[in-house]
């Protein structure tokens, strides 16, 4: 299990057809559009993994395994771009 948290400096702003991520500390911005914006919205509400998959696979009309892969990839991208921060597992 890997835990990804919101980076303390990540802020976001919801516009009509995208979410704008901002890092005030370094000036970085990222526009995320649907369906990534939906994923951001859900994870920012602390949605659990299984529910994320269920909802997004319905929204995207895609099977759950592919949805899970896509979520992982997207979250991993956000983590590498430092919008999210990986937390080391305890113990």
């Amino acid at each position: 299990m890997q835990k990804l948290s919101c980076h303390p400096q990540t802020h976001w702003l919801v516009n009509r057809d995208h979410i704008l991520l901002i890092r005030p500390d370094n000036g970085k911005k990222l526009i995320i559009k649907y369906p990534e914006s939906a994923l951001w919205d859900y994870v920012s509400r602390n949605m659990e993994w299984d529910r994320l998959i269920t909802l997004l696979s319905v929204l995207l009309k895609q099977d759950e395994k592919d949805t899970a892969d896509w979520i992982r990839t997207t979250l991993n991208d956000w983590s590498q771009q430092e919008w999210l921060t990986p937390e080391e597992p305890h113990g």
Partner: peptide, 30 residues
């Protein structure tokens, strides 16, 4: 308008979730 709050997502390792209903189907970006 800016939002920020702490949140976290627990990402399980692969193969801990249900199997694909349509294994032949794969799209990198839906």
């Amino acid at each position: 308008r800016l939002r920020h709050h702490d949140f976290a997502v627990q990402v399980p390792h692969r193969s801990t979730r249900t199997k694909s209903k349509h294994p032949e189907q794969h799209r990198s970006r839906p």
